[in-house]
Design a protein around this nucleic acid. Structure first.
Lengths: 264, 264
DNA sequence: TCAAAAGTGTTGCAGGTACACCCATGA
DNA sequence: TCATGGGTGTACCTGCAACACTTTTGA
C-alpha cells in the first residue's frame, strides 16, 4: 500500500507505525503492537487494497508506481494502496485509491487476488486485496501525462512514476509478485473478454488495438490475421473518421460496439 | 463463516457476538462494538476465510454446508469458515477449515475471490476470502460418506450436509452468490486446466471422468468426442486394471499422467 | 519518388461437432 | 438371451496460422 488512510491526497504510507514510531495517532491502530521489526504479535490482520494501475504509453504497457519515503523499503517503488475503511466496500476502497493516485474515476477495475502471507509486511499483519485498473492514456490528468508526477504537497508529497511492465524497478513488499500475477491474469482475460478495449480511447485504429494486444501478450501478432479475427467478431463498428499521423496513409477509426454479443 | 476460531472442531459460529451477547470472550474481539443489529460502527474489518468444499457424489457435484445454530440466519446452511489467525497464511486458514469440516488434507485448494461488502454480515464488518476445494469422494472420512455428518459434540456439535450444487437450500449471508461464482470459475478452469481430475480417485474410468465434466458444465457431452479429445491430450495413461460394476462389460481404468505437458 | 504505415486473400491444418452401432459381461 | 454400460470411426465445418504485395499520404 502507499497512500494513507487518513489524508485525502497524501503520503505513501499507511497508518501503521514504523518500529520505533509511537505517536498517539499511530497507536490508535489495531493489529499492531510495539516490538522490534519482524516481531509477530498481532491478533487480527489489517486489510488493505493495492491497485495495479495500467495504461498504454509510448506503445508499451506501463504501471503507475509510487516511491516509498519511509521504512520499510524506503526509496523503492510500490503499488498505490490504502487501508479499507469501515464503511466502504473493497471496490470502493480501490476506486478511492485510484482517484487519489491517478485522478480518474469510472475506469475498468477488477479484483485480482488477495495476498495474505503473515510476513509480507514487516510492520504488521496486513492482508491486501489487489485490484487492477485499465486506464485510457487519452484520459489521464495532466499531472500524469508525463513519466513522473507528484501528488500531495509538502511532507506528504508522493512521487508517482510510470514504468513499462517489462522494465520494472525493484519493488517493495511482494509487489513484484503481484505485478507478475496481474500480467498473467490480463493475458488470460485478453483471450476471452474485451478488456483490450479498456486501454483505448473511444475511437481507435486497428493498429492501436493490435498494439494493446501485443503489449499485453509481449509478442507480435500477424496483422492480417488480427484484423480478420477482430472484425469477424462484429464487436467493432467503423466510424466515418480517420486519423492522420505522420506522412503516410491515414488509418480508419473504429468504435467498440457494446451491443455485440459475448465477451465481458 | 461457520466454524469458530477458538474450538478445534466445533460450533458453526465465528467469535463475533450476537447483538445482545456480551461475554468477556466475545468482547475481546475487535471490529465489533456494542450496538443494535445492523449498526455500523467499526473501525477495522475482520478477516475470515470460507471454503466451498465440493465433491462428486451420486454422479452429481455436491457442496458441503453447515447448519447455522445462531443468529443471524439461524437454521440456514452456510459455508464452513473461520477467522484468519494472526500467524497463519490465508491458505493455511482455509486448510484448517477444510480439515475441521471435512477431515481431509492435501486436497486441491484454490483462492476464489474476496467478498467485502460492508453489509454482508449483520454482526460486524467481515471481509471473507473464499477458497474452493475439490475432494475425491473415495477419500472422504466415514463421518461424511453419508449425506449428513456431525462434527464436534455437545453445545458445539455442528451438522454438515452435502447438497447438490443445482439443488441448494436457502443459504446464509452472501453464500448463494459465492456458490454461483464458484461454479462459474470452475467451468472456466475446466476448459484449460486439469482440475477435473481432482474430483476422481487415482484410477478412474473414462465414463467417470466424463461425469465430472458433465456435472460441472451441467450439460451432457458426446461420449466419442469426449474420449477422443481427452485421450489425444496424452495426459491419461491406461492401467492394467478394469472396474467391474453391475452385469455389464468392465471399464478400463486410467491414471492421470502428471508428466504430460500443459494444464494445471 | 520515396518513406512509412494502412490495408487486403488464400491455403493448409487442427480441432470440434454430429452421428449409430457392436462388444463384453452377469443375471 | 437380454439388459446394461463400454467402446469405437467418419465426414463436415470452423477457426487459426502462415505468408507478400498494393495503396495512400506528406515530405
Amino acid at each position: 500500500m502507499a497512500l494513507t488512510d487518513d489524508d485525502p491526497r497524501a503520503s505513501d504510507e499507511p497508518a501503521v507505525p514504523a518500529p520505533h514510531a509511537d505517536t498517539a495517532r499511530e497507536r490508535t491502530h489495531i493489529g499492531w503492537r510495539p516490538g522490534a521489526p519482524g516481531e509477530q504479535s498481532y491478533e487480527h490482520p489489517l486489510v488493505a487494497v493495492d491497485v495495479v494501475i495500467l495504461t498504454m504509453r509510448r506503445r508499451r504497457l506501463e504501471a503507475l508506481l509510487i516511491k516509498r519515503r519511509r521504512w520499510p523499503y524506503e526509496g523503492l517503488r510500490a503499488l498505490p494502496g490504502s487501508f479499507v475503511r469501515g464503511d466502504e466496500s473493497l471496490e470502493d476502497a480501490a476506486r478511492r485509491v485510484l482517484e487519489r493516485a491517478a485522478g480518474v474515476r469510472d475506469v475498468y477495475l477488477e479484483q485480482l487476488y488477495t495476498f495474505g502471507d503473515p510476513q509480507r509486511d514487516p510492520r504488521a499483519r496486513v492482508i491486501t486485496v489487489v485490484y487492477y485498473a485499465l486506464l485510457r492514456a487519452d484520459a489521464l490528468p495532466a499531472a500524469l501525462a508525463g513519466s513522473t508526477g507528484v501528488i500531495g504537497s509538502g511532507e506528504d508529497a508522493a512521487e508517482l512514476t510510470w514504468f513499462p511492465v517489462d522494465a520494472l524497478p525493484p519493488l517493495a513488499f511482494d509487489h513484484a509478485e503481484i505485478l507478475r500475477y496481474t500480467l498473467q491474469r490480463l493475458r488470460g482475460k485478453l483471450e476471452y473478454t474485451r478488456i483490450g478495449f479498456q486501454l483505448l480511447a473511444p475511437e481507435f485504429t486497428l493498429s492501436e488495438l493490435q498494439e494493446v494486444y501485443e503489449a499485453i501478450l509481449s509478442r507480435t501478432l500477424d496483422k492480417r490475421n488480427f484484423r480478420k479475427k477482430v472484425l469477424s467478431t462484429g464487436i467493432l463498428e467503423p466510424t466515418a473518421h480517420t486519423r492522420k499521423s505522420g506522412q503516410h496513409r491515414p488509418a480508419a477509426l473504429y468504435r467498440f460496439n457494446p451491443h455485440a454479443d459475448s465477451g465481458a
